[in-house]
Design a protein around this nucleic acid. Sequence first.
DNA 1: TAGTGGTCTAGACCACTCA
DNA 2: GAGTGGTCTAGACCACTAT
Lengths: 230, 230
Amino acid sequence: MTKQSHNTVRQSMQERIETGEWALGGLIPGEIELAEEYGCARTTINRALQALADAGMLVRKRKGGTRVCNMPVRQAKFSIPVVREQVEAMGSQYRHRVLVNTKTTPPTSIATRLNISDSDKALYIETVHLADDRPFAFESRWINLKAVPNIVDAPFKDISVNEWLIRSVPFSNGDVIFSAINADEKIADCIEAESGTAVFVVDRTTWYKEEYITTLKLYYKPGFQLYTRF
Amino acid sequence: MTKQSHNTVRQSMQERIETGEWALGGLIPGEIELAEEYGCARTTINRALQALADAGMLVRKRKGGTRVCNMPVRQAKFSIPVVREQVEAMGSQYRHRVLVNTKTTPPTSIATRLNISDSDKALYIETVHLADDRPFAFESRWINLKAVPNIVDAPFKDISVNEWLIRSVPFSNGDVIFSAINADEKIADCIEAESGTAVFVVDRTTWYKEEYITTLKLYYKPGFQLYTRF
DNA sequence: TAGTGGTCTAGACCACTCA
DNA sequence: GAGTGGTCTAGACCACTAT
């Protein structure tokens, strides 16, 4: 073979795994050997192998060599949903309405999550996200004022709370919990559903460098689906 | 600075983004310039920049240079859930019970998904996944017999259908849809819940090289949560 | 301790795309 | 056409870990 890109090599190796030429859990040749076989530099082989390891297909160990993963679990990458983009992706017009925006002391469960004391005040905001002026999702959010004190001056008419935060604290970390609940009356009312309807819930908490920023729950309208590919 | 690993460089650059030194949507220095600044080879800088671009923090274009992403959307990677591992991760003992296992003609919606004709038979399997002998999830699965004909001989006493497929067709592609529904009577019965309870649903279809393998729906017991981090 | 992957370098050429 | 990122190479040294 002549001139191989790391991509071509990777695909070739992926096929060797898929066809079983390289058995599940089995050891595969070392980098130098593969470099000779493919007729390219070891660096190129290394890059291809690392990509496959990153995808969860290979497990690599110094001295131990490279093995095909014996319990192949595919991983999927997905973007943390931004409601406005979800709405616009459907071809609908996005708008939002702020129902509540107050500074108040949060319940203990929230205070714990934001790592603030029970007596500290936090910003509580309720928002309804609309798609073509029909309810799409209801958002209930608490914000740690110590983390982003200047948020109180921000007007949320044109820009949503979420997008303000994204711009203000651009690359935070966080966790996400997906679940399903039966809508209580309040939620049902906000998303124009009947009480008791199954609702898809996204519970998200974000932080930046040991400091908690915000925690929110998103209740999507009935029938909502979250799609991913792997 | 002396001897920088690509990791150190990456972290340094990540901070410059987070602190706003490199503004959202702004152009950052070119690779050669950064290489001089950090005192390392361009290859090393390239690697760090590619990692950040991969994480969605940077957007790179030939000739156009590298810019900080102006609408930062964090991405999360998560493993396609394998029920047995979910159960064992909770410290419970996993078992499963096969309720139905028949060869039959699928409804049109399923036939379409598996890309087979309406008259073709497919394998239909219903399974209840148990955690410490209590229902954890109910699985309703269709399998394309043309894709994996030898599955009919497989005994699903020790190993679940899913794990048999994973080993047989180890690195398939697929899509996943998360949603919430109200349990009908049958589902409610299988997961020991009341009819109408909100249930978390995972709908998954997998294929390998243009051929559809299987499509399934997983109905989790009430209170189930799917956790991810970003 | 020896063997494997992990990383870095300096230099080169290519491919894309903006002006 | 010129400038940027994308990729490859050959060689070197380091770090981990299985034996």
